[in-house]
């Protein structure tokens, strides 16, 4: 039987705005399955995003949804979680949103280790504004503002998250749809800041310019470049050249979670 996504989608809100072949829809389905698996009460779940194609996702889902300003999702979400720690808080957004304009909020949310799940859709580009390069556009690639090839080095989002102090960091791709919900489930179950980077695709503004003839070509690239942590353990550095790791990259269950820390502040202030 086909999976029932309908019950999680707000009536009348489809069709979505995404182009045919856009990876963001695959991520949305993964997120729905993960929320179902975790039996998240949608009334008690805030889904927060910034601005971008990826950030339009919350509007389709039946929950408390907050579509904020470009880059600011993690900061809004921090306010929600602090004020009501009993709520489940999920952030979603793009690579530009989360690591360029919102990079500061991203690393500080990681540092605090505040309990939320951040699903970051990395399509290597600013999709919504027409394909300008982002901090994740591979060096040398073409974007509407890198007509001679991108001179910028990239951010490795997962490494950035680990370095900043997130306590659960995982990565997968839109070409591995079943792994998306598995990792989001682990992220939701993890008490602390969970980053799930999903490398997806923007055929319209990135694929076209970078000589991918079809979405299938883009998916093939994701499949060949992705190597699971397990498989990578048996590979040489040479074999890993040009690949990226997928699966759970890092987990720390010792570091205190931020709202728990603040609950201790309240106890102290109240003389308990």
């Amino acid at each position: 039987m086909a999976y029932d996504y309908e019950k999680s989608i707000r009536p009348g809100k489809l069709p979505h705005i995404w182009c045919p072949g856009c990876g963001h829809g695959i991520v949305m389905k993964g997120l729905i399955r993960a929320m179902d698996t975790c039996e998240l009460d949608r009334k008690n779940t805030a889904i927060v995003s910034g601005i971008g194609c990826a950030s339009r996702l919350p509007g389709y889902l039946d929950a408390c949804t907050l579509h904020t300003a470009h880059g600011r999702a993690a900061a809004f979400a921090t306010g929600v979680k602090m004020a009501k720690p009993q709520m489940n808080v999920i952030c979603v957004g793009g690579d530009g949103d989360g690591t360029a304009i919102g990079g500061n909020h991203f690393i500080h949310a990681c540092r605090r280790n505040i309990d939320m799940t951040y699903v970051l859709m990395n399509n290597y580009i600013y999709g919504m504004t027409g394909g300008q390069f982002s901090p994740c556009t591979p060096t040398g690639d073409l974007a509407s503002t890198t007509p001679y090839g991108n001179p910028d080095p990239i951010f490795d989002i997962s490494k950035l998250a680990i370095g900043a102090g997130a306590t659960f960091v995982a990565r997968t791709t839109a070409a591995h749809p079943r792994e998306i919900d598995k990792l989001i489930v682990k992220g939701i179950q993890h008490k602390g800041m969970a980053i799930i980077e999903v490398i997806d695709d923007c055929p319209t503004t990135y694929g076209r310019r970078n000589k991918f003839r079809s979405v299938i070509d883009m998916m093939k690239r994701l499949k060949t470049e992705a190597v699971s942590v397990k498989a990578a353990a048996k590979m040489t550095a040479e074999q890993l050249e040009g690949k990226f790791l997928t699966g759970v990259l890092f987990q720390d269950t010792e570091k205190p979670e931020y709202t728990v820390q603040y609950a201790n502040v309240i106890k102290k202030a109240q003389g308990a």
Binding site: A75, T78, G79
Partner: peptide
């Protein structure tokens, strides 16, 4: 604030501070 069960947070900049305030207000605070 913590004495009355309220929350105080020092954010990473004023933009984040404003964002956190709006987020908190939406929960009813």
């Amino acid at each position: 604030l913590p004495k009355v069960g309220g929350k105080f947070i020092q954010m990473e900049d004023e933009i984040a501070a404003m964002a956190s305030v709006i987020g908190a207000s939406l929960t009813g605070a």
